[in-house]
Simulated assay, not measured.
Amino acid sequence: MTKRTNPLDRFAKHLKPGKLEWIGLRSARKAPLTEVKSVQAIASRGLDGDHRVDKTPGSGRQVTLISREFIEQTEHFLGTDAIDPATLRRNLVVSGINLHALRHQRFAIGDAIFEASALCHPCSRMEMALGKGGVAAMLGHGGLCCKILKGGVITLGDEVRVEVPATTQDMFSEQD
């Protein structure tokens, strides 16, 4: 059986690194997020101190990620000046990297390696948190759900960089 390749694999190596700007953890499902400066990412489980760490191991939604640029788009669509990242209920805020190009890619933040799986669609709570039109403003800008492939410490300011598999690097290194 031949493994299907992701068409983005060819281009992922050209993504410029981004930066980790914000980390938030929830002790329970509907609890408010607590901002932290550093956290241990636990492989196949989630972020230490976040309620998801005790959920289904190996799921594709161990960590949620949104970009500063997506937050700015949401602010634009809502006509507001600033949205606190905790309001959006995502664990990590990054900047300077195209999140849509990260989908189905492996990437590193600090010592940890993640894999972006599904889009993180806004839930109906965003209507209450952001006001009328909150869900519509976030459509297409809700971020990504990720799993942790390799644990490690992640810290504010860490670089967010694509981890292109060696076989992909070899396949395209001479052609591009």
Rank of each mutant, 00 (worst) to 15 (best):
P7G: 14
L8D: 11
L8R: 04
R10T: 12
K13F: 07
K13G: 13
H14T: 01
L15W: 07
L15Y: 13
K16L: 12
G18I: 00
K19W: 06
L20A: 02
L20F: 05
W22R: 12
I23N: 09
G24I: 13
A28D: 06
K30S: 15
K30N: 14
K30T: 15
T34A: 08
E35M: 11
E35L: 07
V36R: 14
K37M: 10
V39E: 12
V39P: 07
Q40L: 12
Q40G: 15
A41E: 15
A43Y: 00
S44K: 13
L47P: 13
G49W: 14
D50S: 04
H51Y: 15
H51K: 10
R52L: 10
R52V: 04
R52P: 11
R52H: 02
V53Q: 11
K55W: 11
K55M: 12
T56M: 11
T56S: 15
P57G: 07
G58S: 13
G60D: 14
T64W: 01
T64N: 08
L65I: 01
S67Y: 08
R68C: 13
R68D: 12
E69P: 10
E69N: 06
F70E: 00
F70W: 01
I71S: 01
I71D: 03
E72F: 03
E72V: 06
E72Q: 02
Q73P: 08
Q73A: 10
Q73R: 11
T74H: 03
E75V: 00
H76N: 10
H76M: 03
H76F: 06
F77E: 14
L78T: 14
T80H: 06
A82P: 09
A82N: 05
I83K: 09
I83H: 06
I83A: 04
D84V: 15
A86H: 12
T87Y: 09
R89I: 02
R90T: 00
R90H: 00
R90Y: 01
N91Q: 01
N91C: 02
V93H: 00
S95I: 13
G96L: 03
I97H: 07
L99I: 09
H100G: 14
F107M: 07
G110F: 09
G110M: 13
D111N: 11
D111W: 08
A112W: 04
A116P: 03
A116I: 05
A118V: 10
H121Q: 05
S124N: 09
R125S: 13
M126Q: 05
M126G: 00
E127I: 03
A129P: 04
G131K: 06
V135K: 05
V135N: 05
V135L: 02
A137N: 08
A137V: 04
L139V: 13
G140L: 10
